[in-house]
Design a binder for these strands. Structure first.
Lengths: 142, 142
DNA sequence: TATTGTTATACTCTATAACTATA
DNA sequence: TATAGTTATAGAGTATAACAATA
């Protein structure tokens, strides 16, 4: 159980993130999506989020930061966004069919890119890596 | 070998990075270091980098972006930075004893934090995760 | 008075280009 | 003229606070 010397985890993941972003941003651009646009569509596709405040919290962003993104997604017909009749302060959010289609198309391409990177790992490590990433990404999300 | 549905790797790692940064930035602050200051000290400690241009390339930063960081590190006595007698355009960089001490103290604390996170994984996954992160972080660095 | 979403402001980061001092 | 480092400028991204409209 002795700790071995190793590079900082944050440094390794930071480098990997740069590689991933470089590979994926052209795919997003082809789909006419920004990174934040893709993040928002993904959040709305994976689980319904009623309000902008709930969405902001779900993706770890400030409520003011997502407004421009929502404006564009709405203009592009990728989300619906309308006042809640029961409480007209609130805007109800919903991904449209076009939004779902765009997101899933982008995701397929993005995960294919990711899989090409992951293919450089032995199968056992690859599975453990994804499993571990999933566990660790959910930590402190409370 | 069928691909399973999974969350995007970039999304998982992005969330984990946020967790790591939140945990580690207080440690850096206690040591009087910025994130970039720590990155620079680490690069200079791990392998000698002669010039600012070489350092910038090694850490994936623009040459103009590191200048302010170097100014502070030099003022604080954590690095030496002097013109190369053989080519006075070049500044030779070197970590000082104080710099090495600060870096290693910070790194010990940072890795302890990281190990607490990693402790939530089964031992096999933890080792595979670190191994995979190391392999993947070195990709495309050419 | 409190809450949701919006706008305005300022601040930080970063990228680009212009500059200097050497070679 | 080319290169290492620096400075200046402007642009993007973000955070904070003030605001409008509801409740």
């Amino acid at each position: 159980m002795a700790e071995q010397r190793r590079p900082d985890l944050a440094a390794m993941l930071g480098g990997l993130m740069r590689t991933l972003m470089a590979a994926e941003s052209p795919v997003l651009a082809e789909h006419g999506l920004t990174m934040w646009g893709y993040v928002v569509l993904s959040a709305l596709d994976d689980r319904p989020v009623r309000t902008q405040a709930a969405l902001a919290k779900a993706i770890g962003a400030d409520k003011t930061r997502i407004i421009g993104t929502l404006d564009v997604l709405q203009e592009d017909g990728l989300i619906n966004r309308e006042p809640d009749p029961a409480d007209r302060r609130v805007r109800l959010l919903e991904i449209t069919d076009a939004g779902r289609k765009a997101r899933r198309s982008a995701q397929t391409r993005i995960q294919a890119q990711e899989n090409r990177l992951l293919a450089q790992l032995p199968a056992g490590d690859r599975e453990a890596f994804l499993r571990a990433a999933h566990v660790l990404s959910e930590i402190e999300r409370n």
